[in-house]
Amino acid sequence: MPIENIPEIYLDNKKEKPDLFVYDFKMTSNVVKSKVNLGMNMFSFLQVGKKQVHFAGTAVAVNKDQSLLLKKGNWLWTELLDTEAIYYCKLFFFSEKRLLEFLEKHTENKVVVTNEEPYFIIRNDAYITSYLNSLSTISDAPAVFMENLLSVKFEELMLYLIQKYGKKFELYLYSLIISEGSAFKKTVESKIHSNLKLEEIAFLCHMSLSTFKRNFIKEYKTSPGKWLQDKRLQKAKRLLEEGICKPSELYMEFGYNNLSNFSIAFKNKFGISPNQV
């Protein structure tokens, strides 16, 4: 699956990336685990549908009652239609330059933030609904005025969210401008019990599959396929021993296409079939 560079694919002029940019994204069919290189921090105001995103060390799912502020980087996006025949979200991109200008103008402390989540969930309310309507209203404004209008709207939104969520949101904004070190182990170990493929985990680590495998063997002294399979089978065995679920209810969750393949792998690992636990 090709990597989508966002917001570049939405820009008329691919060579010039604006500091602020709004885009209405719509689709009429489900998209599962599309690879996205997000080149700017972005608000995703979900209007119709459901959304799930995987980042390096975490994943989050939202519906139309929630919006997201996402950190730039590599993501896997799943976007699903709900009861309507269309998926629709309004995207608002902003540069680090504009973020820094806002923080310098409206916050006092130069805090250092590390290990923050790469997303912030926003509960949609009457203000957000009104705000999105106002963004739609200015979308027809002449280009010469658009930059100034978006500057005002960006500052308005940020001030509202700081008022609503307080220090928590302010600290999150600072985390967006802190460069992170290698999150390789954090990424790998957060995806042990997901059903992501190796290629997808490698993408979240900003690596090709071959580079990912080399780094993995160097770090864990075994192949990623064997290591992940062992970890997932151990978790599956614990769930079966605790009587939480049946083999037929969990094989897909641990990356197996069918119950038969899961049963064979389980028996090879533990000497008994899942039904015998």
Rank of each mutant, 00 (worst) to 15 (best):
L159N: 12
N74K: 05
T107R: 04
A85Y: 07
L80P: 03
F93K: 03
I138F: 07
Y165V: 13
L103V: 01
P142T: 10
M146A: 03
N109C: 07
E155H: 10
Q66L: 06
F154A: 04
S136R: 13
L159Y: 09
K110Y: 13
D125I: 01
L99P: 04
E104K: 15
Y165S: 10
E84G: 01
L100Q: 15
L76W: 05
N124P: 12
I86S: 05
S134I: 08
I121Y: 06
E116S: 13
K97P: 02
A143W: 02
E156T: 07
T129A: 12
L149D: 01
K71W: 09
L135W: 12
V113H: 03
A143E: 14
S139V: 02
L70W: 10
F92A: 08
E155W: 04
K153I: 01
A141I: 06
Y160I: 10
Q163S: 08
K110R: 09
N74I: 06
L68S: 05
A143S: 15
S151V: 02
L68R: 05
M158Q: 03
D65Q: 08
D140P: 03
L161I: 09
F154T: 03
L103D: 03
E117S: 05
R98W: 15
S134N: 15
S67R: 05
E101I: 03
D82I: 08
S134R: 13
F102S: 03
K71T: 09
W77M: 11
S136Y: 15
D125Y: 00
I128C: 11
L91A: 13
Q163K: 12
L68K: 08
K110E: 13
S139Q: 11
F94W: 01
W75H: 07
K164G: 01
L150R: 04
P118R: 01
E96I: 07
F94Y: 06
G73N: 00
F102E: 05
L149H: 14
A141T: 11
K153T: 01
M158K: 11
L76M: 02
S134K: 13
